[in-house]
């Protein structure tokens, strides 16, 4: 018995491969067109309304006092993140320690410093002199070796850095701890079985792998802190946000100067996002 030959509905030419015609997406095109119109409206609102005073924006964007304030914002961010993550890493290691006292203290620190709003902590450090006019280092309840006037030791800048770093450390501790826990247990075992010294196990084997989890979260924190530094304006430190307020209180160009600040924050976070991309790629090596 022979089967009837099935007639192919399309004539297939063996010489020519079939061509693929991509489907059209008319709704997608419509949505894109709508978005384009909205973007154009926003652009026109920004450009044509003279109240934005773009000429004033241009005039102040690179004014020396503004640039100095950007540098202070950067300084606060770098110190806050650097010290915060250094302390946070120590806290994370304490938290994971088998010693109950160490892990409880680390837990308590995170609990306290995450619970109190940053602005309160800043005012607290700023006003520490009211509580302890003098600070001394020595035996608890015993004699002191060094003794300082609190006012001399903790000026507004120190208070700001202290407040930002201690606050940041609480968040950093949780991020670093999560990163350390994300590393497969077999990695610790292999490193121990090879006889690697403890510091080497941590810095060469565990932390670099933990960085894959730490970096994206740390990136969020750093970008958050760039903008978060603006709260130190309450201590009259001339960082970016404080500085533009000083200027617009003098000349009344409020919107233009807020725009100057916004543009600078945008520039800083864009640079950081680019850096983050490369750091993530570095720590992702050997994967995928």
């Amino acid at each position: 018995m022979t089967l009837p030959e099935v007639q192919s509905p399309v004539h297939q030419d063996a010489e020519r491969p079939l061509e693929v015609v991509t489907a059209r997406h008319p709704l997608r095109w419509l949505a894109a067109a709508c978005v384009l119109v909205v973007l154009a409206m926003v652009a026109s609102a920004l450009v044509t309304n003279p109240a934005w005073e773009w000429d004033v924006v241009g005039q102040y964007l690179f004014a020396p006092s503004v640039v100095r304030s950007v540098l202070l914002t950067l300084e606060l961010t770098v110190l806050g993140i650097g010290l915060g993550f250094a302390l946070g890493t120590v806290l994370a290691l304490m938290r994971l320690s088998a010693n109950r006292l160490l892990s409880s203290v680390a837990w308590g620190y995170v609990w306290l410093f995450r619970s109190v709003p940053l602005i309160l902590q800043l005012l607290f450090w700023y006003n520490l002199a009211l509580l302890y006019p003098r600070l001394s280092v020595g035996v608890p309840f015993g004699p002191a070796f060094f003794d300082f006037g609190t006012m001399d030791l903790i000026g507004p800048l120190t208070a700001a850095v202290l407040g930002l770093a201690l606050h940041q450390a609480a968040y950093a501790a949780e991020i670093v701890r999560g990163g350390l826990l994300s590393v497969d247990h077999g990695q610790r075992e292999a490193a121990a079985a090879l006889g690697l010294p403890p510091a080497r196990r941590l810095f060469r084997i565990i932390l670099p792998q933990a960085m894959r989890t730490i970096v994206p979260n740390a990136g969020n924190e750093i970008i958050g802190l760039v903008k978060g530094t603006s709260v130190v304006y309450i201590m009259a430190l001339p960082e970016l946000f404080y500085q533009v307020q000083v200027i617009y209180n003098r000349n009344g160009r409020v919107m233009a100067l807020l725009l100057v600040a916004a543009i600078w924050y945008l520039i800083l976070t864009t640079i950081l996002s680019i850096v983050q991309h490369y750091v993530e790629r570095f720590y992702g090596r050997g994967r995928a």
Binding site: Q187, E189, A190, A193, G286
Partner: peptide, 26 residues
């Protein structure tokens, strides 16, 4: 010690995996 799950260090090259212990432990 050779593990069931290999436990190679994924962020190090094969050569670096081999050299790590002789360099830093020995």
């Amino acid at each position: 010690f050779v593990f069931q799950a290999f436990n190679l260090f994924p962020h190090l090259t094969v050569r670096q995996n081999l050299m790590e212990a002789p360099l830093s432990a020995q």
